[in-house]
Amino acid sequence: MRLKPEGIKAHFDKQFRQGHGLADSSLWAVWISSDEPLFRNEAADEVRAQCRELGFNQRQVYQVGADFDWSGLAQQFETASLFAEQSILQLHLIALPSDAGRKVLLSWLERPPADTFVLILSDRIEAKTLNTKWFKQFEQSQAHVPIWPMKSDGLASWLARRANQAGLHLTAPALTLLQQYIDGNLLAADQELRKLSLLHGKNQIDERHIADAISDSSRYTVFDLTDACLEGKGEKAISIVLHLRSENVADPILLWSLSRELRVLAKIVRAQAAGSSFQDACQQAGVARFRQQAYKQHVTRLRPARLKQAHQLACLCDAAVKKANPLPIEQLLCDLAYVLSGHPPKVCAPV
């Protein structure tokens, strides 16, 4: 029988009603197949939770490759011990069962292993295998939970739902930045949401919180990068870019930080050109009072041509992040940081 992940609990309730145990049910195995580790793990967690309610307090775990000793495994369950505890036999399939493995599974359809619930975990099963006689026999008798990978256009809504379920209040830009950072890795998304929940609880979370959480394991943060730019220290800014990338801080995070600083500087320059005082320009750009001195010193040395070059480089970086630009993203980010510091581009000078 094929189940959806959300149907696991109901299926167990149906199979093991009101205290009926394993001996009173035909269900003794669940096979979960998916190429998405997070979904597979969560479905396995649900199966194990249901098994614990039935008294399965022990677990044996095996990694099953092509050369796995299926016959040796089967021998362990040929005879039931009077004092055996109910346990979960968890099989992680690195490869599909060999001929010997298929024979063991089919033999268990006739005589299930005593006092044992079998949990099988594997990658997605191809249609060719799904249509084989042996798998159809297994699926007809036991439970199969196929979980399909998430489509890319569903990631944003999934991430928003997960954040809400965790009690997090992320702004729309924060969700966008987090989505860019995880790049489709749902395990990474789950880890970051858990971290944000611990750090910020039910408080509103914006882009700065996301960037800070992502880069907090580095000796430098993205805010050190923008500080170096404001100080006009181009070489230091390049070093920080290279360091953060070596620490696996994602390119969209670095680009977000530099682009944000570029927008602030451009707002200040435009406001001053329109006749506003520097203090009023900073206020319009959202610069805190204690940061205004750093911006004042930098604006005086940042030529309009540099701002234009920085904007062009930011566009090139954005295209490179989206795989629409063949230029090396590392060189582009270094150039952007260098130009934002007030210096001419080193490598990827925009036309």
Rank of each mutant, 00 (worst) to 15 (best):
H20Q: 13
Q86P: 04
Q60S: 14
W108G: 12
D24Q: 13
S87F: 01
Q15T: 05
S98P: 02
S25T: 11
V64L: 01
D115E: 13
E85P: 03
G21I: 10
Q90T: 03
G55P: 11
F117G: 09
R111E: 14
P37E: 06
A23Y: 00
C51L: 14
S34Q: 05
Q75K: 12
Q75A: 13
E46L: 15
D99L: 13
I88K: 09
D35M: 05
R111G: 07
K14V: 01
D13M: 07
L109D: 03
I94P: 01
S107M: 07
W31D: 05
P112S: 09
S25R: 06
S26G: 14
A100V: 04
W70N: 08
R48F: 10
L22C: 11
A66M: 05
H20Y: 09
L38I: 05
D115M: 11
A23T: 12
G72A: 11
L73K: 08
S87P: 00
D35L: 06
G101N: 02
W31H: 10
Q63R: 08
A10W: 02
Q15G: 00
F83C: 09
A74F: 02
V104M: 11
R59P: 02
R40S: 03
F12G: 12
Y62V: 05
R111F: 10
D67V: 01
R102V: 15
N41M: 13
A23W: 01
W28G: 08
F117Y: 11
W28F: 15
E46G: 09
A29Y: 02
G65Y: 07
V104I: 08
S25I: 07
G65C: 01
L38N: 01
N41I: 11
L82R: 00
F39H: 14
N41L: 13
D35I: 04
F68L: 06
L82P: 07
E46Q: 15
E78I: 07
H11G: 08
Q75E: 13
L89S: 06
Q18D: 15
I88V: 15
S25Q: 04
V104P: 00
R48K: 14
G21N: 12
A95E: 15
Q86D: 11
H11R: 14
L54H: 00
E42P: 05
P113Q: 08
S107A: 15
P37C: 08
A74H: 07
L91N: 10
L22T: 06
A29F: 01
A29G: 01
G21W: 12
G101R: 04
V104G: 04
H20R: 14
E46S: 14
F16N: 03
L89R: 05
E85M: 10
A114D: 12
F117R: 06
V61Y: 13
G21F: 12
T79D: 09
F16T: 01
